[in-house]
Design a protein around this nucleic acid. Structure first.
Lengths: 246, 246
DNA sequence: AAGTGGTCTAGACCACCCG
DNA sequence: GGGTGGTCTAGACCACTTC
């Protein structure tokens, strides 16, 4: 319980969060707007620092706002990208992200390739290493959305010529097809949980925010796993869409 | 920063959380074990109440522990159910959950049916109401896992005879098939976010835990939407698995 | 230097559970 | 009544940002 000044039994933090949540969701506070500073709010309403912070942390965990140390707390844009699953492989299949952007400006991406080791889970799926690893960070409007790390058996990667930053026209899957290992089936496993501090830092998230972890395994016509892709997504920015027959 | 007793600059809450997280994940603290009480921990380590609570709240948001008011904080079982998507419709297709249990004891479920209104989103998909609503709560080992609310056009529900608690052998989809409206395609949209206090209460979750919200729309052979199912899942208890062709 | 977020201490008080 | 979780106040101190 929350013993407020002469008015005991109120949940001040929860109510404060609800108040600002309503303002944000109703559009009275637009994306980019700055929330009252913690000190100001605490003085105005005769609350403690901790109560105000608890409220703001809640809003940040919900992805409604974000803080910038030394500057302020700002309302975020609530728009989400739809990540549609079978469909985005249908045509051309260049960047996995191409169908995600809905006509908005193309995303920035950073690639790193190397011969590498991998987790036990990757070894379980692809067999013993070494592996070719490709790490990519997708951003939109300066906001980090997704971190993707792809693993291929190193031998296959060299054979297909995808052990470099640029995988050429049609992308990695086209190169794999050219050496007879076209991926024809995918299996995605989705985990949802609160981000660790490392994940939060990597994606620029606030404490307590939800993320999706997606493990996608691609299989060729003979059922052999050819690629494992481990993705970390800001859950507040995505809708995952899957279509399938019943 | 965290000015600790004569040792400033330490993040006591984060470190405390990390310490217990390691104990839980390594198996030194087994599911069901009770963590030290907040008061004991605070006294033993000369910390403040708030620091200990912050650490415990973090563990609870991660789904590693749960508190019971007046009793203690307890380690949770980290096992997850795999919810495999196209496959669980393959045979018989009775309860949607049947493939989720992996041979463990069957889940308890509560059903409520009625003629009802629905959200704008449901109206957008199914057209104007009224609707037949079926709400179900799935539990396992006394732990609430999933809340599912299904909407059908009321006329169709009556015609197919699924406006009751028991939908007969083969379940609702078989009844719909008998009146020429067999669902043949599904589209699921997955949202991830921290649970609201209402959702947390309904599912028995701790503050700050992640949930999946799944909206599944089922379509018949002619592409007409016949059912919308809105599901709320404890994200810490599930892996969502989807298979599809590339 | 002033303003802002961020972490912590110390202590109060309440609600729930059980013997 | 004693133990346990849960919420809050009051105040200290630090780090980052801007002027």
């Amino acid at each position: 319980m929350a013993p407020r000044k002469g008015e005991p039994g109120r949940y001040v933090a929860a109510e404060l969060a609800a108040e600002f949540r309503a303002l944000i969701q109703s559009g009275e506070l637009l994306p980019g707007a700055q929330l009252p500073s913690e000190a100001a709010l605490k003085d105005e309403r005769s609350l403690s620092n901790a109560a105000v912070r608890a409220a703001y942390e809640r809003l940040m965990a919900e992805g409604l706002a974000v803080s910038r140390h030394g500057k302020g707390v700002y309302v975020l844009d609530p728009k989400r990208l739809v990540r549609t699953s079978p469909r985005r492989f249908a045509r051309g299949a260049q960047s996995i992200q191409s169908a995600d952007l809905e006509g908005r400006e193309p995303d920035v991406q950073v690639d790193v390739d190397e011969v590498a080791t991998a987790s036990d889970r990757v070894v379980e799926i692809l067999g013993a290493g070494p592996f070719c690893r490709r790490s990519r960070l997708f951003s939109l409007d300066g906001r980090k959305l997704q971190l993707a790390t792809s693993y291929l058996p190193a031998g296959l990667a060299v054979e297909a010529g995808v052990d470099q930053t640029d995988t050429g026209s049609g992308g990695m899957y086209e190169r794999l097809a050219e050496v007879g290992r076209r991926p024809v089936k995918a299996c995605e496993r989705v985990y949802g949980r609160v981000a660790t501090s490392e994940e939060a830092q990597a994606l620029g998230l606030s404490k307590g925010m939800s993320i999706f972890l997606i493990e996608r395994v691609a299989y060729d016509e003979e059922g052999r796993a050819v690629e494992v892709n481990e993705m970390t997504l800001d859950a507040s920015k995505y809708i995952l869409e899957y279509e399938f027959p019943i």
